[in-house]
Every structure is written in C-alpha cells, then in structure tokens.
Amino acid sequence: MNRLYALASAGFCVASAALITSASAFPSEEVPKSEPEYIAKAKTAAPASVVNNATITMPQPDGSSKTVQAGSNGFTCFIGKDGTPECDDQNAMEWRKALQANQAPPNKIGFIFMLAGDTGTSNHDSTERHTHQHWVQTGPHVMIVGGAAHEMLSPYPRDVDVKDATQPFVMYPGKPNEHLMIPVHSQEITTGSTR
C-alpha cells in the first residue's frame, strides 16, 4: 500500500514541477488533421522530458493508427476522440486496451499524464458524454489506473457528481474503468531583473 501512495505522490510532484500553463485553460475538442499540428497538441499532455521520448500515435481515416513519432521511454501519447491529449505508460495502455475489449483490467498500476486538462465527460459513464449529466471537466491532472490501483481509491471522494475537480477524486466510481484523478496546479514562474 505504501508503494501505491509513493507512486501517486511521485507522479503528483513530477507533474506539478513540470506544469507551467494556466490551470483554467482546457483543450479544444479539435483533433488536428495535419501531423505537425497533431504532434504539437499531443505534446501538451506531459512534460517535455516525457513527450520528447514517447511514441506518438495518430488515428487514420481507415480506423488504424499511425506512429508519427517513435519513442523509447514506454509512454504513448495521442489525442482522444474528444480532443483531449494524453500520454499513457505501458500499463495504462494495457488497461485501456482491456477496457476497449470489455475485459477486466490487468492487475497492474498505470500512470497517465493529461497536463493540458480534458474536454469534460459524464462521471457516471464515459459513453454518456453527450448527455452532460454528472458532468465533470478537470484542468491539468495525472491519473492512476489499473486493477492494482483499486486499493488506493478508498480514501478519495467517490461522488458521481464531483464537488471539487481541483482536488483528487475517483472517476467513474464503481465502474470497471474507475481510476484516481489527481489535479495538479500550475506554477507561475517569475524572473526578476537586476539593475
């Protein structure tokens, strides 16, 4: 259990230290069509030290996915159908694939960066996004996902109607894809000049 909390704390610190954008900004729902624009938007999901060495994949008109940047660090970055850029570690990608195949998530812990924020969804069911019921939109955040992460969810709010999306909470409580959302706050960097 201590390992799980250490992982969450480390992720929070890394994301907090790397974040320099405004916490009030959210990404647009646009999924760029040109590779340079797509790569630029995908790279807003995580710190440069992650995205510059990550694989970036781009959906193609035929439904396939094309690698537009080969990576070496085990992270895969992409833009979701809703326009949200994200970077998933290998375990998070396994979690995502299992859920898409209606299989139980692997008993692993995965980590996801979404430092550009998200475009919002229904916290009851991601397939109900269009209803805007139980709506939640989160600014810059990281996520802890996977079957092995479930034991760390109990201390966090599990309300389907999120009361404060600037604090950690459980996304999709009680669903197979439930996971921990950890908002990160921006840091203003100021430089002084000497005269």
Rank of each mutant, 00 (worst) to 15 (best):
P85I: 09
S72A: 06
A148C: 04
E151A: 09
W95V: 10
E128F: 10
K43T: 04
G74W: 03
K81S: 12
Y156W: 15
A165L: 12
D161G: 04
A92D: 02
E94D: 08
R195N: 15
E151V: 15
P157Q: 07
A92E: 00
Q90L: 13
F75M: 12
A149Y: 01
K108G: 03
T190V: 14
L115Y: 10
P61N: 12
M93D: 06
A92R: 00
A104V: 11
A40K: 12
A40I: 01
A45D: 03
A17L: 14
F12T: 13
M58E: 11
E128I: 00
M171C: 10
Y172G: 00
K108H: 06
A8S: 02
D161F: 01
E29H: 10
P61Y: 05
M171V: 13
Q90M: 09
A40C: 07
S193N: 13
M152A: 15
R3W: 06
A40Q: 09
E86S: 11
M114Y: 05
I39N: 00
M1W: 11
V136S: 07
I20G: 14
I189V: 14
K41Q: 09
P168Y: 06
A18C: 10
D159A: 08
T131H: 08
F78Y: 15
Y156P: 02
Q60V: 05
G146S: 11
I109Q: 04
G146W: 03
G117K: 04
G139L: 06
L99I: 15
I144Y: 01
Q100T: 09
F113M: 00
P183C: 02
